[in-house]
Design a protein around this nucleic acid. Sequence first.
DNA 1: TCTGGGGTCCTAGGACCC
DNA 2: TCTGGGGTCCTAGGACCC
Length: 401
Amino acid sequence: MFALIDCNNFFVSCERIFQPVLDSKPVIVLSNNDGCVVSRSNEAKRLGIKMGQPYFECKDLINKTYVFSSNFELYGDISGRIMSIIKKIFTDIEIYSIDEAFVYFKDKHKLCLRDIRTYIKKCTSIPVSIGVGQTKTLAKLASFLAKKTGVYIMDQNDILKSIDVSEVWGIGNNYTKFLKDRGKTTVYDLKISSDSWIKRNMGVGVLKTVYELRGVPCFALNKNIEPKKGILTSRSFKKPITEKIELEEKVSMFATRVGEKLRSQGSKASFINVYIRTNRFNKESYYSNVAKIELPIQTDYTPELIKYAKKGLSQIYRAGYSYKKIAVFVTGITNSMQMNIFESVRAYNKKTQLMKTVDKINKKYPIFYAASGIQPKLFMDKLNRSKRYTTRWDELKCIKI
DNA sequence: TCTGGGGTCCTAGGACCC
DNA sequence: TCTGGGGTCCTAGGACCC
């Protein structure tokens, strides 16, 4: 059997650990720049606040003291604690996202799932739901039903007739609309559709999903963390950027971050891409473009990444626009490398050593490339970020006695 | 006024081959 | 008044996920 262990309203639940006053209040957590809603307590959901909704649209619905900027350092740390508890209980585990893990087990665990739930709550104060099914897709569906009951074991067919098809893992907005337009509104309707029709209209991915709904496993448990196939750093800016020099600084910053991510998984990249765009909600005078540059040799060397990222930027930069978003991403990622015949092994080793040293220093004292500007900072709105209680000595929770 | 960030996989269609 | 058949590889873009 598969089970999905899923943290309820995860970011909000993390905020509640250290501020119990938030319990039973409508609470939301916002994305970068305090732009969109990314987590909601049940009470906030009841107020009609939607996932992904722009904050300015719903700010009148909710008391400001219950609105938080995202605090990923905290959420990541709490997530790690939960995952390590799950790892102690199950050997077959796939960490699927910051707040979800799939596990695989034989029947004997079935009875103590409620205890596991209680145990995680006791250790971390985070409420979780556990859904169980014969396949990952069924477990995921069960975890949706478990939001009410805590634990749900998917063992009967009838229930599928009462669940909206959009709840299926792998059926998003577009497919939901497509299916509903054709009278298929419930999970059951999808499950009994013909294989050829599904494959023709929605491809082999959805066909696998439907097999899973029928109890035929098509998605295996991924126990290993695979190296990323693409690495991306991007930001939107509250205040748009018009000057090329400022764009160059940001692009250099992002290329630097991409380099760090590459090295941390021991990879090198073959291509570097730079993407810029203006405000996507302003249809007039909209401009977006992406430059793709093949690197002379695969690399993880930051100065090289910065050089070509800037080159990419000049290919697509058009004066006169106000840019809202920049992304730098690398593709063609490998773990082996073709040596450059024009570069000596000694020079190569020197670069590798330099990057190692830079990464090491950066862990203690942030240093940066001059290309990123004199004071490389992303000015982002994080007006109400809580303290990083579990990862910073100077932000520990204090109690007055 | 104000609209996130970071990923994966699949497919259609073009280029190219014999 | 007329231009084959069968295949591979690559890429852009679209779908999805949290």
